[in-house]
């Protein structure tokens, strides 16, 4: 199948995807537009987590914490000071990034599974803190109500259709931004660090700083997603930022293809839209989903649309060429 997909020039893909994106909301009803809206929000979250997990190779199972910080920043400031939602986008990004800086700094020397466990811990701490209503700010288990709607050039964005264009504009911006980042000097540094941190350090890369940067940028984008989510829902509560959310985001990245932007979009589709399609079989839905995940890990561990590098690495292994370099002597 891959061969047929490759025969289509990439530009054709972009044009088709762009057309579909614009036409889609006019072909369907509000329910499916809202599905697309949440698809967009999760795509943002997936893309933001992809920077941390996919590019820098840092296991983060507490990404919902950054999402929550962004959402609550917007919610609290909007409801108390009535600052317009869209003005709060950079602020949400900043608070989430600042929060990531604070928690990531002391734990970045941890590796793999250890880092993963600590991020789970941080994710839970944030959620429980929100439930406990510190300083009366977060509204406890009820959350924050009555969050305003964003307005753009006098148009108040309220209907799903309006949100659709707002959300997907953000998705597009983030896609373009992360693409640039991936190809930049920073992106290459992450790549080296993920493959071999010691060799990267020996060659002059500031490993600690680059890892921190991945966390901070990833968190900032999750904060942006949180801002949009808060205004879309008008109500947020700690229930929206559970460990399960972090798991979903992590699965999006792994399912779609670690480090690959198209992969993340496909992964989000798989994680989010497909279960929606099968809502009819609601009782068996999770069972099917679980089975699909297991099948994926067995038959396509590199993800649905892996990045170029993963594809190369996998090809190497199947051909039986030396992957680590030490196994073969000349």
């Amino acid at each position: 199948m891959d061969r047929y997909l490759k025969a289509i020039p990439p530009r054709a893909w972009y044009v088709a995807a762009g057309l579909l994106l614009v036409v889609y909301p006019f072909l369907t009803n509000d329910y499916w537009i809202d599905v697309a809206n949440f698809f967009g929000i999760y795509a943002m979250l997936g893309l933001s987590l992809n920077i941390i997990v996919g590019y820098a190779g840092l296991f983060n199972l507490g990404h919902a914490a950054f999402y929550a910080v962004g959402a609550y920043t917007t919610a609290i400031i909007n409801t108390t000071f009535h600052v317009p939602i869209l003005w709060l986008v950079p602020l949400s990004a900043l608070t989430a990034a600042g929060f990531a800086y604070l928690i990531a700094r002391p734990i970045l020397h941890l590796r793999g599974d250890y880092l993963c466990i600590v991020t789970i811990g941080f994710g839970e701490i944030v959620r429980i803190t929100l439930v406990n209503n510190p300083l009366g700010l977060t509204g406890g288990p009820n959350g924050v109500l009555g969050i305003g709607r964003p307005s753009l050039f006098g148009l108040i964005i309220k209907q799903p259709l309006h949100f659709y264009f707002l959300i997907w504009a953000f998705v597009l911006l983030i896609v373009l931004g992360t693409k640039r980042l991936e190809e930049s000097r920073i992106g290459r540094a992450w790549n080296y660090i993920r493959e071999d941190a010691l060799a990267a350090a020996a060659m002059g890369i500031d490993v600690a700083r680059m890892k921190l940067l991945a966390f901070v940028i990833g968190a900032a984008l999750a904060g942006v997603a949180g801002n949009i989510y808060a205004s879309k829902m008008a109500v947020i509560s700690p229930d929206s930022f559970t460990f399960w959310e972090s798991v979903v985001m992590f699965s999006i990245v792994v399912l779609g293809g670690v480090g690959s932007i198209p992969g993340i979009l496909v992964g989000t589709f798989g994680m989010f839209v497909l279960p929606e399609l099968f809502r009819g079989f609601s009782s068996a839905r999770m069972l099917v989903f679980g089975a699909a995940m297991i099948a994926m890990m067995i038959f396509r561990p590199q993800g649905l649309l892996p990045s170029q590098r993963w594809r190369r690495a996998m090809v190497d292994e199947t051909v039986g060429l030396p992957a680590a370099g030490l196994s073969k002597t000349s």
Partner: peptide
């Protein structure tokens, strides 16, 4: 830190080569 030492002009070809096989 290592990255600053590299900038000063010390370069290390580590044991076991540590090249990046997928690049």
């Amino acid at each position: 830190p290592a990255h600053q030492i590299v900038r000063l002009g010390v370069s290390h070809a580590p044991e076991g080569r540590k090249i990046f096989p997928t690049l």
